[in-house]
Structure formats: structure tokens, C-alpha cells
């Protein structure tokens, strides 16, 4: 949900603890931001973001938690880490994204791009079951769940005949070690 342009945000009524929360959870201090925009300048997906990386840092400062959890950028960020790599203040924006994505997920905030969320879930399921991302079953499941049965079918056929798609689900040697990872972290951890 974008900021309402006709009703000014009241800075003193925003969630002033968010900044501190992020500081503790993500070990990154947004107060160090110089507002230079180097993060956005380098971002590979900024052109499809509703809020660019610099603005996301600014939203944390403003305590605009609602906006952060509902924003589209949460689901279109590919966590390429370029923003943090370029940041002169080393603000870890991908980690802030991870944190807010988890928070949105736990609070049941529905992403506008629900397919992205579904894809994340299916992928983690696959890892939980086999210890690996089994691409072919993942793609089939994804297409079935989103009812786009013939999506990428032609590409898939060609990849299959070139031996690029394994129709089976290979397993890691010790699946229990992977499962232990899942029990150690709460529910689904994204990213």
C-alpha cells in the first residue's frame, strides 16, 4: 500500500521503535545513511520497485512499518547484495528486506505478487524434503498451483531433451542434517 499522498505522514506518530528493532535484528544502523542513492543507482531491479532501496532505508527511519510490509519491492528484490556492496556506510539493505519479508509473512500480510511468495514456499518445501532444489518437480508444482499449465512448456521440453532437467528428485546423502537446519530456525525463513 503506497503512502497516502493527500494525508501527510505524522513523523511523531510513526513507529519510532522500528529503527532500533532493525538495528538489533539486522545489525545495521540506518542512521548512518548519507542519502546519496548509490544503492538505488546500482540496484538491478529498482526499475520495477515501488520503493527504491534508498527510500526503503528512509522508510525505516520514518518508522513506516505498514508501508514496508506491504511494498512490492519486498518480493521483487532478488537479494543480489549490490546495494550493500556499494553503500559507503555499509547499510545492509538485503538483510533489512529479509527481516521485513519474514515479518510480513508471519503477520500474514499478503504480497501483491502472491506467486512470488508461493514460489518461495514451494522451493523451501523441496529443500525440506530432499535437501536440494529439485527443479523439475518444483516447476511442475508451481505451474499446477498457479494454474498456468503450459507456462514455459516449450522451453522445458527443449531443456529436457538436452538433458538439463532431471525428472527425478535427487536426495542429499544425509537429509537429517538438512531437517535439523529447519528445526533450528522458526517456520519458514525466507531468502
Amino acid at each position: 500500500m503506497p503512502v497516502d499522498f493527500y494525508k501527510p505522514m505524522r513523523l511523531n506518530e510513526m513507529n519510532s521503535s522500528l529503527q532500533q528493532e532493525i538495528k538489533e535484528a539486522c545489525d545495521t544502523d540506518v542512521e548512518l545513511c548519507l542519502e546519496c542513492g548509490k544503492c538505488t543507482g546500482g540496484c538491478s531491479n529498482a526499475h520495477i520497485f515501488d520503493y527504491t532501496p534508498r527510500k526503503i532505508v528512509q522508510l525505516v527511519k520514518m518508522g513506516a512499518e505498514e508501508t514496508l510490509m506491504n511494498m512490492d519491492a519486498l518480493w521483487t528484490c532478488v537479494s543480489c547484495q549490490l546495494c550493500v556492496d556499494r553503500c559507503p556506510s555499509q547499510i545492509n539493505i538485503p538483510r533489512i528486506m529479509d527481516y521485513m519479508r519474514e515479518k510480513a509473512y508471519h503477520q500474514g500480510v499478503k504480497a501483491r505478487r502472491s506467486n512470488v511468495q508461493l514460489f518461495h514456499e514451494l522451493m523451501l518445501d523441496s529443500i525440506k524434503k530432499t535437501g536440494k532444489v529439485a527443479e523439475t518437480p518444483l516447476l511442475i508444482k508451481y505451474n499446477l498451483s498457479t494454474k498456468q499449465y503450459m507456462k514455459d512448456a516449450d522451453l522445458g521440453r527443449r531443456m529436457f531433451f538436452k538433458g538439463k532437467l532431471n525428472p527425478f528428485s535427487p536426495r542429499v546423502k544425509d537429509i537429517n542434517q538438512v531437517r535439523r537446519l529447519f528445526t533450528r530456525t522458526p517456520v519458514h525463513k525466507e531468502g
Binding site: 503512502v3 501527510p8 505522514m9 505524522r10 511523531n12 534508498r54 527510500k55 528512509q58 522508510l59 520514518m62
Partner: peptide, 16 residues
């Protein structure tokens, strides 16, 4: 106080 947060491009208010 009424102003624009020019970094966000949104109007803001603050009570002081």
C-alpha cells in the same frame, strides 16, 4: 510543522 520529505517525495507533518 508541514513540509515535504524530499527524499521520499511525500508531504509530512510533525508536532513540536
Amino acid at each position: 510543522v508541514r513540509a515535504e520529505d524530499t527524499l521520499m517525495g511525500v508531504p509530512i507533518e510533525v508536532e513540536v
